[in-house]
Design a protein around this nucleic acid. Sequence first.
RNA 1: CGGGGCGUAGCGCAGCCUGGUAGCGCGUCUGCCUUGGGCGCAGAAGGUCGUCGGUUCGAAUCCGGCCGCCCCGACCA
Length: 578
Amino acid sequence: MPVVRASKAFIPTLKEAPTDAQVASHRLLVRAGFVRQLGAGLYDYLPLAKRSLSKIEAIIRQEMDAIGAQEFYLPALHPAEIWRESGRWDVMGDNMFRLKDRKGGDYCLGMTHEEIFTAIARDELRSYRQLPQVWYQIQTKFRDEPRPKSGLLRVRQFTMKDAYSFDVDAAGLDRSYDDQRGAYERIFSRCGLDFVAVQAHSGSMGGSGSQEFMVRTDAGEDLVAACPKCRYAANTETATSRLEALPDQPWEGAPERFATPGVVTIEALQRQPYGVGARRQLKTLVYLADGRPVLAVVRGDHDLNEAKLQTATGASEVRPAHPEEILPLLGARPGSLGAVAFTGAPVFVDPAVAARTNMVTGANEDGFHLRGVDVKRDLLGHGKVAELRTVKAGEGCPRCDGTLDVFKALEVGHIFKLGTKYSDALRANVLKADGVETPIVMGSYGIGVERILAAAIELHHDQDGIRWPLAIAPFHATVLPLGQEPELVQAAEQVVAALAGAGVEVLYDDRDERPGVKFKDADLIGIPVRIAVGKKGLAQGQVEWKLRGSKDVALVPLAEVAARAAALVRQATAGAPA
RNA sequence: CGGGGCGUAGCGCAGCCUGGUAGCGCGUCUGCCUUGGGCGCAGAAGGUCGUCGGUUCGAAUCCGGCCGCCCCGACCA
């Protein structure tokens, strides 16, 4: 095992981090000399980072290979045609980096590789006998994120392990999907991450089902709803909850229009003289789904979830309508909108209000509302029930009698049952045993490599720096001679040689620095085992053994450290498939 | 895309309001000193003040355009 000497290594640590680093992983990666920023969402990975990233990739490879997945390496530069075939050249919009070649042909930088892998399957797979196939690669992806942020957590160029499964039928897909899920659990565990697998929104990938692997951290951008009593856990983009049924006072006859001058908020309608509780109001929101207007109706005190609206409409993109788009459509401004008897656009109604009666909503006339609205009678004739609202912490679990917890989380992996969306689009078919041609049933499975790195730091750090899980630490151990005296240096080099001989990866801090500097850097970089060689200990033939995660310092005979470190490394990196 | 902030030495910042000398800390280099938690002393190097234009005798400072970066709201590994 080669030894790295700190005096020669490029490990540019900093006393102060740039102020624009907001999250712990970003701050520490910069301070500890792992990364530097090149541009918005673009990072230089320096040698320390490269070492850790390579370890993460190695774990991913081992687990992929263990379930029979085969590694590929495909281009990151794609001709536009293949994306046009699947229809995603347009769907991906501004998130895709696009460019032209010298002849004027359209190209893009790959955001993901469903199209490319599916094209290979289409061209090469003919028979069900060749299935299942599970293919993967570890490769660079490019996404022109509207807002890169949080260091490595949201960037424009990143490394993804993406895998694709090809089966004859849904049962085969289920098996491939389960294999991947198992591999993902082992990968994240081995990388030292606590994670939860949650039910997820499929977004632009399409398909029937998907799960995200989430790391619970405030640095994350997703919200997960989870039940501590049962296994239920879902991204709030799909999570549902159990709500108490609300009693409604009876109301005879048709809705009644009443004047509400100047009232344009739920809040205002709650106040006197109206006194209409938010839970008795219908909130009507106007959105454009792929450019076409739609209405979303939720309870007054509930929040619309745009991802759910996207699912309900089947659109690839939804956005709130501008006020000037709303007025001509509904004849009123926001604040007086309602969906009663409105057929000018599709209407979606949240289940929480589907059975309600005697509700109040806008009359589509500025300054007027309607009361006595019976949702089933007045809205569901033309409208459709669809999950639209965002669940909140404290609501009932939809699966048991528990109470939902809602927390922030970072997505590190996502697995999808794609079905035949891409095989249909690209005509990737095989012949079944009965001689009939059938579209290949696909799954797609992604892991963000740099996100694992950053997530591990979010989970494992303290005031002094990073506390790497041993399996993905840039080095297993660091050896610090606490002075330049020949006997110290000689003893340190003896320890270093023994460690290297025992298969331990060592950073040897041979710099002519004061002990304080070496201790600070060792803590900052976060190497799991620190072996300090000082005069006092050496007089007894001992060196200091300290683990980054603990306060305890042990004196260990010089001759025993290597075996001790090797045992620790063996134990911590166990779990690799044979 | 909507809103806010910033751009001055490698890093962190002051100077700008009220135009005229570009400064501080850390880091770097040299020497001495020190050697168990980012020591101490002395000396030194290092800046087209993001960029283009305007105002002015004179612009880091005032005005305008552009570029870049960060943060807050809608997207994803």
